Amino acid sequence: MRRSERKQQDPDLGVLAGRTLFGLQRELFAAVAEQGHPELRPRHGAVLAYLDEEGSRATDLATQSGQHKQVIGTLVDELVALGYVARRPDPADRRAKLIVPTAKGLDHMVKSDAAVAAIEARHVEAVGEEAYAEFKRVFKQVAGRY
């Protein structure tokens, strides 16, 4: 049996995680594009998925997303240019900057949260509430090891 066939029939954790991530991203970004945010790409999720409404430091976004600070800086530059975030002085530390969502960014965050909730609701409907809750519990436990 060829490796690609084996991966299709008995996918390992990496393949399953990739399918889950890429499928979720395709569906999520298509949904928010239809709702007024067509310029966003999955790479922007490294910032937008972890951004607090009150703002977040770039170092915290890097830690939470698992990306290098330089990558986050580039993504923030793109999101500033697109009008989704702004850089503001951090009131807790004048030397630091906060990445703060704009009104457009907040709109995206609300629509994105609703789209993910709808996706999860469909999964619950497909496999049952108990099975999905157990899946998320185990998936969280496995993901927490990284």
Score class of each variant (00 low, 15 high):
G55D: 01
V124T: 11
V71D: 11
R95H: 08
E120I: 06
H108N: 09
A103G: 09
R3K: 14
A126H: 13
V116P: 00
E129F: 00
E5F: 10
I119N: 10
Y84S: 01
K7D: 15
P91F: 09
H108W: 13
I72Y: 04
G14S: 06
A46N: 08
G55S: 11
Q25G: 01
H123W: 13
A118T: 12
Y146V: 14
F22E: 10
F139Q: 11
E134D: 15
A62W: 04
A33G: 15
V127N: 13
T20I: 07
Y50E: 13
Q8I: 04
E34I: 01
R145N: 11
A114T: 06
E129N: 03
K7C: 14
D12W: 00
D10E: 08
V76F: 08
E78N: 11
D93Q: 09
L40C: 04
A81R: 11
D52Y: 12
A133L: 07
V100F: 04
L24M: 13
D113F: 05
V85D: 03
L48M: 15
L51S: 03
T102D: 00
S56D: 01
G18H: 03
A96D: 05
E130L: 12
M1G: 13
Q64R: 11
V116N: 00
R3H: 07
Q25M: 10
K69P: 00
H37G: 07
D52P: 08
Q9S: 04
Y84H: 03
D77A: 14
V15H: 04
T63L: 13
I99W: 00
V80E: 15
Q8P: 00
L98E: 02
L40R: 09
R94S: 13
R94P: 15
A103K: 03
D90L: 00
V100R: 01
L48I: 11
D60C: 01
A103S: 07
G18V: 02
A33V: 05
P38A: 14
Q35T: 01
V124Y: 08
K97L: 10
L106P: 06
G73W: 00
G36I: 03
V32W: 06
R2A: 02
Q64F: 12
S56V: 02
T74A: 10
E39A: 09
G66E: 05
G73A: 06
Y132K: 08
Q25T: 02
R87Q: 12
D10R: 05
V124N: 02
P11I: 03
A114I: 01
Q64D: 15
R3E: 03
A114R: 13
A133K: 06
F135D: 04
T63H: 09
Y146N: 02
D52S: 12
V47P: 00
Q25V: 04
P91G: 14
V138M: 01
I99D: 04
Y146H: 07
H68P: 15
G73C: 04
L61I: 08
Y84F: 13
K140W: 07
G83D: 11
I99F: 02
L16P: 00
R145V: 10
V47A: 01
P42H: 08
R19D: 10
K69F: 01
L24N: 12
A117S: 07
G36C: 03
G23P: 07
A86N: 08
L21T: 09
